[in-house]
Design a protein around this nucleic acid. Structure first.
Lengths: 227, 227
DNA sequence: CGAAACCTTGACTTTAATCAAGGTACGTGG
DNA sequence: CCACGTACCTTGATTAAAGTCAAGGTTTCG
């Protein structure tokens, strides 16, 4: 976890930031806006999204407590919106651009975290079926919260669908299926609990137990001729 | 573009690196290996990939001349393989970890570029149909090469398929369709040319001409309550 | 208490995957 | 130089999966 709050640090130069409250559904910034700030979630859930010409919406990420978002080039390549009522810390972009004081690694930490989150999103799309994609999503959300085996799903089915490139119908059906199979249990639409994590991993195609990743004689990929 | 080659710089501390030649199909590093180095493509094409438990292969990116790859945490989260015969520069990871000399921005530049490439991969998956996904892929490859309107496709149809989460059949059919529609023309499987870029953008669902991205009254996203 | 927003499920349609066959280009060895 | 084998690409027919259309249920909030 990245510790960004200057209140808790003994460093010589506290970073000034604003704490903002944003209502559920409100926009935090738009795609194309100048990147004057970046943000860290204090509480609640944020989504980043883009709109395609055909009207489709793509959710590129969900951000929970302590997650950082809004790190981008000169203009935001995606919008950010509040999934729930949200409290965020807003940092001026400048503190990422300042010459290093002694914590030159701040920008690096933030970039690394952003890259890690982006890679997780990419990995989601390696999953072929709706079942495996939803299962992988649930595992991912569970991993990032500290309430295991509980899973909080503050976002709507439509949000999940636009994140996984499925329809809300398929998402709903698939979650119901997972519950029917006994891998999870639902206590209302926003509140799930994992009953069988290994089973869920198998459903996600990510191996529940031991798995030799070198055993795949997949077409074309000649292995072990390392440089 | 990131200028990394110390030979061309007047800086006081040239970064030592090895130039490596890697044969087509050979592995450069494996998923899980310690990240002792990162790389920059000199010539040829590299792919990064992961294997899922069900045997599926996921290609998380293609890297062309000047692109940087292999920037990761303590262990590589994906393997890298040579799509063609390849020449790369290999840099010791250490030079990213050194305390800043005066070019403290090197790591930042590399991370930013990696993040940008990762985001482009994510955006690919915002596309619903096989047609729009393939079209977006072709545009992306064309953008990154400087041979417009030509498109070099050094990777196989299977590679493209595993990158777009489609089958090689669907990729092949879709490329044929695009040619039949007159948006591109093929001169052998690895060599395409864009005939109608706007048409291709429309096929990709990314708007060929003017497009008001604020006109979408998409469900749930209340806009313009900016913080 | 009524309306709105969201979730679930069923019936049918569309899309891409699978199964299958054949074609083309390239490299190797006779 | 040609014949063969291999790897890769294309296309057609069929099947499976997800999308679409439609209806009804639940929760929340005014």
């Amino acid at each position: 976890m990245i510790t960004l709050c200057p209140r808790d640090s003994a460093g010589p130069r506290p970073w000034s930031h604003l704490v903002l409250r944003i209502a559920k559904g409100a926009s935090i910034y738009h795609e194309g806006d100048l990147t004057r700030h970046w943000f860290q979630v204090v509480s609640g859930t944020v989504r980043t999204c883009r709109f395609l010409a055909d009207g489709h919406r793509q959710l590129t990420g969900f951000y929970f407590a302590d997650d950082v978002f809004g790190v981008d080039g000169s203009n935001y390549s995606e919008a950010a919106e509040a999934v729930t009522d949200v409290v965020v810390r807003r940092f001026p972009n400048r503190i990422l651009e300042d010459p290093p004081v002694q914590d030159m690694t701040l920008r690096d930490q933030v970039l690394e975290r952003a890259l890690e989150i982006a890679r997780q999103s990419i990995f989601l799309f390696g999953h072929k079926s709706a079942l495996s994609r939803v299962a992988a999503f649930l595992i991912g959300v569970a991993d990032r919260s500290n309430a295991l085996p509980g899973i909080q799903l503050p976002m709507s089915r439509a949000d999940i669908a636009d994140h996984l490139n499925l329809t809300l119908h398929t998402v709903s059906r698939t979650i119901s299926d997972l519950a029917r199979q006994g891998l999870i249990t639902l206590d209302g639409p926003q509140n799930a609990r994992i009953l069988d994590l290994d089973g869920l991993r198998v459903a996600a195609g990510e191996a529940g137990q031991a798995f030799d990743r070198h055993s795949h004689a997949t077409s074309g990929a000649k292995r072990c001729k390392s440089a």
